[in-house]
Nucleic acid binder design. Structure first.
Length: 478
RNA sequence: CGAGGCGUAGCUCAGUUUGGUAGAGUGCCUGGUUUGGGACCAGGAUGCCGCAGGUUCGAGUCCUGUCGCCUCGACCA
């Protein structure tokens, strides 16, 4: 493994100040710029390209599973938002209101969507009449706004981009299966495309979505041991349907309420990618979503034939990869640092010596390992290196998670571990809110989820000692 | 929303204690030499000192207010 040396003095080291390291990367890799509105970020081309790649992959998967894209309004009338009482109670503190149209005060305030359940419900109530109209499998890619108190680029911005799937089903079983299916779509996407291992599980009642019967989540662990809720999928039962009068005539000729789901994944995930794979030289991107997968850097480019050879390689690789040839006047060393900052998975160097030997040099972003590759076998070698690279990212992230996952069977043990470490603590729980609050109070940990992969660590609740109902992953979250 | 920190050149910041010509590094532009890990030389451009009031002969500096950003808590995708 090549020596890991910090090349870029401009970034704060992640061990010194992880939060600062994060903002340094976000700005210096040109993912975002701050805007003049608090908490709202400008997503720059390089950052947006990552999102577009995420979109492309997920959108294809949604459609493969039968979902259709739609576009609903940005504004929600207050009366509509108010219809489901748990939902409005959950979101009221963080909605922004439009009160005027031009100079005229509106009769009814309009809320800027924090999420679109209510809009989908209203629409569904118009278009669903029969079981033959079901299921409805809609999704939209859009922006939403939540009046957040503390904001950070990607991780928690007031306005953010996401997709929200909203589906209606004839039966509970179908809706529950949809909820699980979509959670797995997210989880597989994270693991296969983003090289981010996730824990799949269910949220406790305290942590679940406002108005949901059940909320499922995928939790990723960041490099500093904190958890990031990276995607959620909710089962609503027929609560929203009742509140919004969505009624269909069933196969048995009776009036019935459909069962509903929603699921979402946001630009927050980009923050997750940064904090999962990044290092002191900058961003480290998984190939699936990297805007540039291979950067070609001509060495001694003023010498005859170098630029021509570089351009030829770029054309050749463009058939299969997102490639950039940097023939700017900056020195080769400058370019190395620049594209490391930007997390480009592979760097291809080609100079006079390589041309003479009919080869090029390929360098991996994650460990700077160098490969001397004959041009005849370029594509096959790149494929090999790329898949090793991707695997290495996944393994590094898994190793970090394993090293920072603990378990506890008593409160003393739990508080001690929490005080000395950052990470997940697995512990048994009785299911009572009281204990959840007590754990927050004593160990400053919140429940991240009740994993589907349960392990019986003890018979009793870590907090109260009463019989335990499930194992919970506890931690600190973003 | 609580506690703390910060707003001066594109960026990072010094200058504020003790009021008196607006600074450095980096980046940017021009020309030349370089080019296998952020090159070098020479020349050049760039400021409503966050904003609004006030004190003063004079304010980047003092006072009041206000807006914004960052960090840590509380709340949340």
């Amino acid at each position: 493994m090549a020596e890991q040396k910090k090349m870029v003095e401009a970034i704060t080291s992640m061990d010194v100040d992880f939060a600062k390291w994060y903002t340094d990367i976000v700005l210096k890799a040109e993912l975002v710029d701050y805007s003049s509105v608090r908490g709202c970020m400008i997503i720059r081309p390089y950052g947006f390209a990552i999102w577009e790649n995420i979109q492309k992959i997920l959108d294809a998967e949604f459609k493969r599973l039968g979902h259709e894209n739609v576009c609903l309004p940005l504004l929600i009338p207050e009366s509509l938002l108010q219809k489901e009482k748990d939902h409005v109670a959950g979101f009221a503190p963080e909605v922004a209101w439009v009160t005027h149209g031009g100079n005229e005060k509106l009769n009814e305030r309009l809320c800027i969507r924090p999420t679109s359940e209510t809009l989908f419900c209203e629409h569904y109530s118009h278009i669903v009449n029969s079981y033959r109209d079901l299921p409805k499998l809609y999704n939209q890619w859009c922006n939403v706004l939540r009046w957040e108190k503390t904001t950070r680029p990607f991780l928690r911005s007031m306005e953010f981009l996401w997709q929200e799937g909203h589906t209606l089903h004839e039966t509970q079983q179908e809706a529950e299966a949809e909820t699980q299916q979509m959670l797995n779509v997210y989880a597989d996407f994270c693991e296969e495309h983003l090289a981010m291992p996730v824990v799949r599980g269910r949220k406790t009642d305290k942590e679940k979505f406002a108005g949901a019967v059940a909320t499922y989540t995928i939790e990723a662990m960041m490099h500093d041991g904190k958890a990031l809720q990276s995607g959620t999928s909710h089962y609503f039962g027929d609560g929203f349907a009742k509140a919004f009068d969505i009624i269909f005539q069933g196969r048995d000729n009776t009036q019935q309420y459909p069962h509903q789901t929603s699921w979402g994944l946001s630009t927050r995930l980009i923050g997750g990618i940064i904090m999962t794979h990044g290092d002191d030289s900058g961003l480290v991107l998984p190939p699936s979503v990297a805007p540039i997968q291979i950067v070609i850097i001509p060495v001694a480019q003023h010498k005859e034939g170098v630029l021509e050879a570089s351009a030829k390689l770029a054309d050749r690789l463009k058939a299969k990869y997102r490639v950039k040839l940097d023939d700017s006047d900056n020195s080769a060393g400058w370019k190395y640092s620049e594209y490391e900052m930007k997390g480009v998975p592979l760097r291809l160097e080609i100079g006079p010596r390589d041309i003479a030997d009919n080869q090029c040099v390929i360098v991996r972003r994650d460990n700077r390992q160098k490969y001397f590759v004959k041009l005849d076998e370029l594509e096959s070698k790149i494929e090999e290196i790329m898949s090793e690279y991707k695997l290495a990212l996944y393994e590094k992230a898994s190793a970090n998670r394993a090293a920072k996952t603990f378990s506890a069977t008593s409160m003393d043990e739990m508080t001690k571990i929490a005080a000395e470490n950052s990470g997940y603590i697995n512990a048994m729980w009785c299911g009572e809110l009281e204990c959840e609050l007590a754990i927050k109070d004593k160990a400053n940990l919140s429940s991240r989820c009740m994993p589907f992969n349960q392990e019986k660590l003890a018979e009793t609740c870590v907090c109260c000692g009463k019989p335990a109902k499930s194992m919970v992953v506890w931690g600190k979250s973003y």
